[in-house]
Simulated scan of single mutants.
Amino acid sequence: MDDLVPYEVSYSERVREELRALIARAKNAGLVDEVLSALKGIEKRLRLYPQFGQPLWNLSVEPAQMWMGVVAPLVIQYVLDESRRQVMVVHPITPLRNSGL
């Protein structure tokens, strides 16, 4: 397990902006601890085991695939390129329905 090479994870600027807004909404809803915990869990999974979600479809740039994962109360869609060990988050992270966010 010591030889495990983490995946490189990158976030688009749009995703970063939306994350700031999501955290602000979470503060107003009294859910900031839950959201921050979920974000930490997402980051850890994306770096170590991004296959935690479900593949949605293959992209034209093979072998990249679009994936979706859930760490309550958040949903994330991301591009996984196994051959380069890269994860790209290009869609804003969104709350689950009825999560209070």
Rank of each mutant, 00 (worst) to 15 (best):
L4T: 09
S10L: 02
Y78Q: 01
D2V: 10
G53A: 03
S10H: 06
V15G: 05
L74C: 08
E13V: 09
V15F: 07
V87Y: 03
S12N: 06
G41D: 12
A24P: 01
F52A: 06
G69V: 04
M66G: 00
M1K: 09
E62T: 11
Y78K: 01
L80N: 02
Y7R: 02
Y49H: 08
R97K: 04
W67A: 04
N28G: 11
A24Y: 15
S37W: 15
H91F: 07
E34Q: 15
V9L: 06
D3Q: 09
P6R: 13
M68L: 06
N58P: 00
Y78P: 00
L59D: 05
V32Q: 15
I23S: 06
P50E: 01
L39A: 08
R20T: 10
P95F: 13
Q65C: 08
S10Y: 02
V9H: 05
L39I: 14
E8R: 12
S37R: 15
V71P: 05
L101K: 06
Q51P: 00
S83I: 02
Y78L: 03
L36M: 15
S83P: 00
E18A: 13
V61W: 14
L39D: 07
A26E: 12
V70K: 14
R20P: 00
V79P: 00
V61C: 03
I23Y: 11
D3R: 08
P73F: 12
S37A: 14
K40T: 09
S37D: 14
L48V: 10
K27N: 10
L59V: 02
V89C: 04
S10G: 00
Q54K: 13
P95R: 05
S60A: 13
I76A: 11
V35R: 04
A29K: 15
D3E: 10
L31W: 15
S12Q: 07
R85Y: 11
P55H: 09
L74I: 11
E17I: 06
V32G: 01
I93M: 07
Q54N: 05
Q54Y: 04
A24K: 14
Y7M: 02
E62A: 12
E18Y: 08
N58I: 02
T94H: 01
E34L: 14
E34K: 15
D81N: 13
N98K: 09
R14F: 03
I93F: 12
Q86E: 13
V9D: 06
